[in-house]
Nucleic acid binder design. Structure first.
Length: 197
DNA sequence: TCGATGGCTTGTA
DNA sequence: CTACAAGCCATCG
C-alpha cells in the first residue's frame, strides 16, 4: 500500500515584524489564509529563518501579514489584543504534518486555554477538570506543543501550588508576560487574589 | 505495539 | 521551606 505523504503540503507565508530588537513572525497557509504557527520573538534574524526552513518544506517570506505579526508583538508587550479564533487553523490533522493539531485532546486543551481572560491565570489541573479528566500532566504536554503561543495564552496556565511552571520560551519569559498583564508575582509564585477561580 | 517521557499533582519526610 | 516518590495519562519512537 502506497502512502501519499505530501498531498496537503501547501505553501506557508512567513511575515515578520521587528520591535525593540526582537523579531516576531507568523506563518500563514497560502491555501486557507489561516495561521499555522506563531513564533515567539527571537533576537537573531538568521536563527529565525533557520527555524522556518527546518519546519516547512515550502515557505516564502512576505510582508503580506506584517500587521498580524505587529499585533502579536503587542500581545507580547502586555497589551490586550483581541484576535478571533477563526484566524487559526484548529482542525485536527492525524497526518504527520508538522505544527498542526493532531488529537482532539490537544484541540480541547487549546480551546479551553483560549478562554482564560487577560490578566488572569488558571492551573493545569483546572484545565484538565474542565475537560472531565485527571490528565493534569498531559495538559502540560499539550500546551508545550501549542502552535499559537500568545494568541492562545498558555502562559496563563500555572501550577497548582501557584508557582509559574514551565514555558517553551522559558519560565522567565512566562513570568514577564504575566507581570506585563498586571498579575502580581513574588519570587516564582502567583500572589493569590480574587481573580483566581 | 509498548515502554519511556513530560510545561503536573499530591503525599510524605 | 525543600526534596522526592508515586500516581496519572496522552504522546512519541
Amino acid at each position: 500500500m502506497v502512502k501519499v505523504e505530501d498531498s496537503d503540503q501547501d505553501q506557508i507565508i512567513i511575515s515578520t515584524y521587528k520591535q525593540d530588537g526582537l523579531i516576531f513572525s507568523v506563518g500563514i497557509s497560502s491555501s486557507t489564509g489561516k495561521i499555522m504557527k506563531i513564533f515567539l520573538p527571537k533576537k537573531d534574524e538568521k536563527k529565525n529563518i533557520n527555524i522556518n526552513s527546518k519546519e516547512y518544506a515550502d515557505f516564502e517570506v512576505s510582508s503580506e501579514y506584517e500587521e498580524l505579526a505587529k499585533k502579536i508583538s503587542k500581545i507580547y508587550a502586555g497589551e490586550k489584543v483581541d484576535l478571533n479564533l477563526n484566524i487559526l487553523d484548529l482542525e485536527v490533522h492525524t497526518s504527520n504534518n508538522k505544527s498542526l493539531i493532531k488529537t482532539h485532546f490537544m484541540r480541547d486543551v487549546l480551546l479551553q486555554t483560549y478562554k482564560i481572560p487577560f490578566g488572569e491565570v488558571r492551573t493545569y489541573k483546572y484545565i484538565a477538570e474542565k475537560l472531565g479528566t485527571v490528565a493534569y500532566r498531559a495538559v502540560g504536554t499539550a500546551l508545550r506543543k501549542n502552535p499559537y503561543p500568545l494568541i492562545i495564552p498558555c502562559h496563563r496556565v500555572v501550577k497548582s501550588d501557584l508557582t509559574i511552571g514551565q514555558y517553551v520560551g522559558g519560565s522567565r519569559m512566562k513570568k514577564e508576560l504575566l507581570e506585563k498583564e498586571g498579575i502580581p508575582i513574588k519570587r516564582n509564585m502567583i500572589v493569590k487574589d480574587n481573580k483566581f477561580p
